[in-house]
Each structure stands twice: as C-alpha cells, then as structure tokens.
Nucleic acid binder design. Structure first.
Length: 564
RNA sequence: UGGGGAGUAGCCAAGCGGUAAGGCACCGGGUUUUGGUCCCGGCACUCGAGGGUUCAAAUCCUUCCUCCCCAGCCA
C-alpha cells in the first residue's frame, strides 16, 4: 500500500495529515500509534473502529501500534475488563508486537513530571473542596477566579504534594492543579486538576499509591514515554488538545500530535458504556456477550467474523462529522463474508410433515448436495431422503396469493437436491383447522432436481427427512431496538422503552439434517433459504443449538409486506 | 451569551478552482436447483442559506442558519 516515499494512498483526513508529516520528515518518517482503552467495560463495535484505525495506520506506514490500558482511576477499573479487552483485540486480528502496556507503569515518572511543574511554578496544591473548585471555575460565559492557594510557593507545594503521596491527607482534601488561566474561554484550561487523593487499591500497583493522576495530565505523558507520533482520539477530546499540548510543552518532552475523529454510532442500538452496562445490569440481556449486544464479544457469539467487522470499519470511513451508520451496512458486511464461506445445509425451523404417497414405505436413499455453490472446493455431501419429510410451514398455502412460488394444492415444486413433488391435499386437525400433514406424490424421473422434459416448477424448497432428522434448538436473533435511534426518547421515556420484544425468539423443535448434530461450537452455516447460523457454545451431539447471525435477504417478505 | 468542532442523496463518504467518485439502502430488469449469490440499469442540473471574487466555485472571500462538544477530584 505504501509507496517508496513511505506515503499511503490517502483514504481519510488522518492519513492525509500523516502523509504530510512524511513529506516534511517529521518524526523521522516513523509512525507509532496506540489504542488506549480504560479497563472499565467491554469493547464494542465503536472501539473496533478505533482499533482498525490505529492498527491499520501503523501497518500502512510500517510502524507499530501499542495496546495500552489507561488505568489511572482504580475505583472504576477491573482485571476482568483487561482480560476481555486483550482477547477482543487479538480476535479482531491485530498484533501489538510486544507486551501489553499500562499507564500505571508510568506512575513514578508522572510524579516526577508533576514535581517538575511545581518547581517551575506551573502547578500548585489546592485545599479547596470539590464544590468550591466548581464555584471558582466560573461558567461557560463567565471567567473563573483564582483559588486563594494559587499563590503558594513552590517549596510549600512540593512539601504538600509529597505529603499527599505519603497518605497524610484524606480523600478529597487536596488536589494538585496546573496553574494556567482561570479566565480562559476553554474551561479545561482553568487550572485543571492533575492529581487527586484516592485511598483505593489499584489492580496493578496495589496500595503503592494513594494519589492518582487525571486523564489530561497522564495521557500525554503516556503517549510521550512510548514515543507515540500520532495520538488519535475521538471528537470530545478536541477541547482538551490545548491542555495536552500545554503539559507536553511545559515538560519539554516528546510531543505527539493529537488528532480527533468522530466516534461511531449505529442505528437500532446503543453504544455508550453506561447504557450497555444498564442493559446488562437490568437483565435486558444475558451479559456483555449477549449475541444482541454491539460488543465485540456479543458479535462474536452472534457469529460475526473478524473479517466482516474489519471490512465494516473500512467502509464507514473516518471523518469529523458526527454520524450514525445504518445497521444495514454491518449486516451487509457479515452476509457478504458468510456467503463466501458458509456451508449450505438444510434445517426446518417450523416443521410441517409431508408424506409422499407414491414413495415406497420403508425405502430410503441418499441424494447428493453441493456444500457451497460459491466455493467448489467445499465439496459435496449426501443427505438421506425418505417417504416422510418436514418442510417449512410457511412454504405451503392452501390458498396461495399472487406471486407465491411455493407449495399449494395441485402445485409442483422442487425439493432441493432431490425430486419434484406435487401436492395432492392438506390434512387438517378438524378441531383447530391447523394443517397436520401435506400429502404429495413425487416424480421418480426428477432425481437430483431436474426434469428431462424441461418443465418448470413453481419454486425450490428446503426439507429434512423425518426419520433421519435431528431435533435442534434455534435462537432467532434480531435487532435489539425497534427504533432507529433509541436515544430519541421523548419526555419521560428512556431507551429501554424501545427494546425489541422479538430480539430473541427461542425455537425448540426445529428439524435439521443429521450431520448438523456434530457441529462444533462456532461453526458457521447457511441454513438454505433462511439465513446464516452458527453453532452455539452450548451445542452438543444430543442437544444441538444454533444462533441466527443474520437472515438472508428476503424479497418475498418484501412483496408480501407491500401487498398488505 | 464564552470557547472548540461539523454541515455534499434516506445513511456513510470522496472531492482540495476546471463542471458532483464509491458503498449501503431503495427502485427496475436479467441469470439461477436458495424469492440467496451474481450481472446490468436507475437513484444530487446540485453541495446548509444568501451575497461576492473568477472565463469557471462544493472548493476562495463574506454574512447568516442549523447541529454537536465543554462548567468530573471520569476517560
């Protein structure tokens, strides 16, 4: 992708900036990026965008990308999140080339930096309470005013800061602040807090510290220490850039360039950690990895592939416009990927029995089936056929509407890979009117699904031989919300009011072809004419379980909907 | 009302003074032993609005409008 000048065909404004840096020789032509999650939640598809961007740029420019945990707040962070984040980044297919990094590894250096700023008179210890600090900060339109402690001498600040570290003061009693400008139009520059006192154990440093650095102070130092060249983050940090720059300039250390891009929003779902956490905690989903969640682990369980997610991230582009991408694009990406790779099999989700009257009782045979028409190397297999079969209940209509190309009394259809069958009659339960059995005849000369006389049939149906069928449980997943934008809730409504009651439908008496019982967890299939499914983690020989990843496109459903 | 950003099709998004790429969605049509896939065709006389500069403006200047972010000892 990159040419001799180490530039890259620019596909977005960030690569354009980096190309510019390549031309001027900034950073000696090196590119080092980083993905810096806080370990306080699971990764979601929005993070995937950032991951693909950072690792993608590193790879385009033959540089590297660090995986670094921004663990500066011990009370919000947990070990389990670290584990899951590492797993997800790996699963997406990225390699950070060395050990995982932690902001907490730099705590000592950060402390030295703070001391340095105190000595320069650029930082001071403040005794104001949280409430007072807020009052002194002013508002969006009014400037703030100086804290009474702003004029403390460096020696006093040094001593106080040291005692803060030693644990002599209770939580919240003092903070270390940068001395910048209390009247700045940018509120972040109004003497931001650099350190706060928290007597809390840290997941990595234990009780080694009782003061912890704030994001604005810490992040630039982390980037600097690692020699990051381009520090890519989301739009809401744009207001923080002057502060990022201020700290690095005052410290006089390596100064990466912060660049901001728009975070991803997706229709029919929510993306904020707070909301995802609420879905989990309120039991609306089974966990962070529920297949309906937009989390990486949820998508993985749902049957999404790393390749499809990477493709999606490439297609959505990178820009500074706030945007909400259509869920249909993500769905398109997974269909496209699975279309190439999924083995075609037959499964009947809502079975109704078919009896072929002229097929000899007790006889059975094997018919040959192509595994994947998109991939000849996938080979063929044999499927049992017999006198009694199951077909999809919705593939039969007693009184077929126009354009219904399936089975109906007197009509002939093809059973995929097998024979033409013609419906003679439907048997009903006299009390309920429900169809219990469809009686057909078959044409023995159409074996393989072809007729020598060239006659056309109405359509092709999938089926499963009843005596050979295995029972299976299938979970039909759908979009989690019924509204494109669940956040658009009006007065008194909240996003959970728009949860889709049909986002997960459990079917427990589906009939699948025998081979499917030995599917291993994670195996992907196309259930012919239905959609893409993957074997669930719980699947077993005796109790096969499948999750629907995504349905096939369904033009018949569209026609039917239109005619209603 | 202070500061910082953004407005190109239903949704993303190229475009960087020379006459609106591409993808998704949608609508036609063809192929088809999946109403899938695939293939072909249609989808912005106009770029938030108005003025101006220019032979020429989505691109430059200007005024206005709309939306997003910021007042955590969160990141």
């Amino acid at each position: 992708m990159s040419d001799i000048n180490n530039k890259v065909e620019s596909t977005d404004f960030i690569r354009e900036i980096i190309n510019g840096d390549m031309e001027t020789g900034k950073n000696g032509g090196r590119v080092i990026t980083r993905f810096p999650p806080e370990p306080n939640g699971y990764l979601h598809i929005g993070h995937a965008k950032a991951i693909c961007l950072n690792f993608g740029i590193a790879s385009d420019y033959k540089g590297s990308c660090n995986l670094r945990f921004d663990d500066t707040n011990p009370v919000k962070e947990e070990e389990d999140y670290v584990r899951s984040i590492i797993e997800d980044v790996k699963w997406l297919g990225f390699d950070w080339g060395k050990e995982v990094l932690f902001a907490s590894d730099y705590f000592e250096f950060m402390y030295e930096c703070a001391v340095n700023l105190i000595k320069k008179g650029k930082a001071y210890v403040d005794d104001l309470t949280g409430d007072e600090i807020r009052e002194y900060r002013g508002t969006l339109t009014e400037p703030g005013k100086d804290s009474p402690h702003r004029g403390r001498k460096p020696e006093e600040n040094l001593e106080l800061f040291e005692r803060m570290r030693k644990g002599e003061f209770p939580d919240g009693s003092r903070v270390l602040r940068a001395r910048i400008d209390m009247s700045s139009g940018n509120i972040n520059m109004r003497d931001p807090v650099m350190y706060r006192i928290m007597h809390a154990p840290h997941h990595r440093t234990g009780d080694g510290w009782c003061i912890y650095p704030m994001y604005d102070f810490a992040h630039g130092i982390e980037d600097s220490v690692e020699g990051i060249t381009h520090s890519i983050c989301t739009l809401e940090f744009e207001n923080h850039r002057p502060l990022y720059d201020w700290f690095l300039d005052e410290l006089g250390i390596h100064h990466p360039q912060q660049i901001e891009f728009a975070r991803l929003n997706l229709t029919y779902t929510v993306m904020s950690k707070r909301k995802l956490l609420r879905l989990v905690e309120d039991g609306h989903v089974s966990g962070w990895d529920d297949p309906r969640m937009p989390t990486i682990s949820g998508l993985r369980r749902r049957g999404y592939t790393p390749g499809a997610i990477r493709d999606f991230c490439e297609r959505i582009g990178v820009a500074k416009t706030n945007s909400t991408v259509d869920m249909a694009l993500l769905e398109h990406c997974i269909r496209e990927d699975l279309n190439r790779r999924a083995m075609r099999v037959m499964a009947v989700l809502d079975p109704v029995k078919v009896v072929i009257e002229n097929y000899p009782e007790g006889r059975e045979e094997l018919v040959e089936a192509v595994n994947n028409p998109e991939d000849p190397s996938a080979g063929k297999r044999e499927i049992p056929f017999s006198r009694t079969l199951y077909i999809e209940r919705e593939d039969f209509r007693e009184d077929p509407p126009k354009k219904f190309f399936r089975l109906a009394p007197g009509r002939e259809v093809r059973l995929k890979h097998a024979y033409y069958v013609k419906c003679r009659e439907a048997v009903k339960d006299p009390s309920t009117g429900e169809i219990t059995e469809i009686r057909c005849t078959y044409d023995p000369d159409t074996r393989g699904g072809w007729s020598a006389d060239g006659r056309k049939v109405m359509g092709t149906l999938h089926w499963v031989s009843a005596p050979h069928a295995r029972n299976a449980r299938v979970r039909l997943y759908d979009r989690l919300f019924t509204e494109e934008n669940p956040d658009s809730a009006g007065e008194g409504r909240t996003f959970t009011d728009f949860l889709n009651p049909e986002s997960c439908r459990n079917l427990d008496s589906c009939k699948v072809e025998p081979a499917l019982a030995s599917a291993a967890p994670g195996n992907v299939f196309q259930f012919l004419r239905l959609g893409y499914f993957c074997a669930d983690m719980e699947t077993s020989e005796t109790d096969p379980v499948f999750n629907r990843t995504i349905s096939l496109k369904d033009t018949w459903a569209k026609i039917e909907k239109k005619s209603r």
